[in-house]
Structures are given as C-alpha cells and as structure tokens.
Design a protein around this nucleic acid. Structure first.
Length: 294
DNA sequence: ACTATTTCCTGGATGC
DNA sequence: TGCATCCAGGAAATAG
C-alpha cells in the first residue's frame, strides 16, 4: 500500500528512468472509475509530450510534461530527412501539462519493454520514444489517472516533511476526531497513510484514539518530529513492502522490517514487551502499545 | 464546518 | 478440494 515514502521512492525511480523521454501515444482502459479525467483529455494532454520531470505531491505521482518542437521532432525521426528549420515562432510554442497518477492500494507503474507480458489489470500503456513502455497496473482499481492542463496540479493538505511545528499544530486545533483519523485526513496532512500514522503515534507515545483537541503542544511536538523521522527513515529504506509493493524497477522496499507496531498485533512491544493491541478506528486497523502510548 | 459511515474492488487467507 | 465469506485500505460520497 503506497504511502508517502513508497510514492516518493517510485517517483524518484521514475524520474531517473523516464525524464527526457517522450510519450508518443497512450492506450487507456475503458474502466470509467480509474479515469478521473476522460480518456480523450488524458490522451490530449500526454501524447507527443516530453517528460520534464516526475515528482510526488502527497500520494500523487506527477509527470510534468511539455509539448514542443523537440517532442514533435523526436517523433518524426528516422526515414524522413531532416525538416527545414522551423520558424522561431513555432519553436517557442510550448504547452505544459501534467499527468497525475494515484496508485490507490495496489497500483503500480512499470517501465518495460514492449514485448514483456501485459499483466492482468493493466489500465494504461504509454509508448515512449525510447522504445519502452510505461504501464499502469492496478488489480484492485483504487488507483486514479488524471491530467491537469490549466496551470499546476493543486491538492489540499500540507506536506508533512515541510510543515513547521506551528503549522502542524494549527492543523489539528479544535478537532474532536481521534488523532489517528486526523493524521489520515489528506486535507490536513497529505501523504500519511495507515502504516506511518501508527508508527509515528507509537514513537510519540500517543494512543491513536486520543482526540486531537485534547493534545497539548508537547505531545504535538513529539508527534511532529516522530512523523518526520519515520517518513525519512522509510524513504531511506525504499518504503515498506506490505502485500505487493515494489518500486518502479520491481524492487521491494525493506522498511517493513523496522515497523514497531503496524502488523504486530499480539507481538511484544519492542520497548516494554507488552503485547501490541489492534483496534479499529474510523474503519482502519490501528496498532499501538497500551503501556507506552497514553 | 465537522465528523462518522458507507462504498468502491480483487486477491489472498480462512473456515467448513 | 472446493466453495463461501471475510478482510485489507484511500478517498469520495453520503448521512448526521
């Protein structure tokens, strides 16, 4: 289940592998729910574009695209002789757009050779000028594809790794919801999912059911630094491979080996040996140590 | 303006 | 073995 560290790992890997390549054409699924923008809109915004960069916003992967003379020339290549130089006005005509991919639970972006087997549940195939293909595969179909053409893609929420303490505390002020649920609310913080919410709360010594509004500045300060710490450590480890997560090269992350509470129900707390508890909060399983977390 | 609950979706695990 | 049932989860939609 890709959360911020997994999405960051994937985006970095993709940036390395496809930046500078050109999307020549794209095939899209007819499954309506997977496409947040229409197939026509996605094709129009992505075909014949140069990939300028790939980066992450919350749990979204953003491809920054540009359609310009370079992209068109790349595409025309081969047998045709070099065309006469375009006029300056034509050369300077560029259109920027963005392709936005949310992986949901089981979404994967793979860069592969065209002859490699097309996996079941493949919902998009972009043909690249390098000869490779960029494919979106998502069995459970919680993932979403969309494009942004007018200005930069916007999404709500604060980036947890960029939030100063004051900003962080202000997000939760007056909220009666459990702190666990607040951490998962993408309109407040973006990118935190179930694993890292549980891990950050454990490190901060806060029970997941505590109402956000009942926490004073001191526990918030601990939570603020714990969250950043766990996210940084997870990114360094290439993310957590639970179920079927792999990065864009098909490699597993290994932060799951460092989980202290997530998925450890009944196992001894690494600090005090008390069995880790699992409860359901807002429909999400939440793991904590009843002794270490207050 | 918030908060809580339901819905979407499939593969893997579990139970009889 | 085979079949039914449950469960995982992000975010949008719905209800309160």
């Amino acid at each position: 289940m890709p959360e911020l560290p997994e999405v960051e790992t994937i985006a970095r890997g993709l940036a390395e592998r496809v930046t500078g390549d050109v999307i020549e054409s794209i095939w899209l699924t007819s499954k309506p729910q997977t496409l947040k923008s229409s197939a026509q809109e996605i094709a129009a915004a992505t075909e014949n574009t140069l990939i300028l960069n790939v980066h992450r916003m919350g749990k979204h992967i953003i491809f920054d695209l540009e359609r310009n003379a370079v992209a068109s020339a790349h595409r025309a290549a081969k047998p045709v002789k070099a065309k006469p130089l375009r006029r300056r006005s034509e050369l300077s005509e560029t259109t920027k757009s963005q392709w936005i991919v949310h992986l949901g639970m089981t979404g994967r972006l793979q860069v592969c050779e065209p002859h490699s087997e097309i996996l079941k549940h493949t919902h998009a195939i972009a043909k690249l000028a390098s000869g490779r293909e960029l494919r979106f595969v998502d069995p459970r179909r919680f993932g979403r594809l969309s494009v942004a053409t007018n200005g930069a893609f916007e999404t709500l929420g604060t980036e947890p790794l960029e939030a100063a303490l004051g900003t962080f505390v202000a997000l939760f002020r007056g909220r009666k919801t459990p702190i666990k649920s607040a951490l998962l609310n993408q309109k407040l913080l973006r990118g935190v999912g179930n694993i890292y919410a549980d891990e950050a709360l454990f490190r901060a010594g806060i029970r997941p059911r505590r109402r956000a509004s009942t926490l004073s500045r001191e526990p918030f300060a601990r939570l603020h630094s714990s969250l950043k710490e766990v996210l940084h450590e997870a990114i360094a480890a290439g993310g957590s491979s639970i179920s079927d997560y792999v990065n864009s090269s098909g490699d597993e992350g290994f932060f799951q080996l460092q989980h202290r509470v997530y998925g450890r129900e009944g196992e001894p707390c690494l600090v005090c040996k008390t069995p880790i508890k699992r409860v359901v909060i807002g429909g999400r399983s939440s793991h904590y140590c009843p002794k270490c977390q207050k």
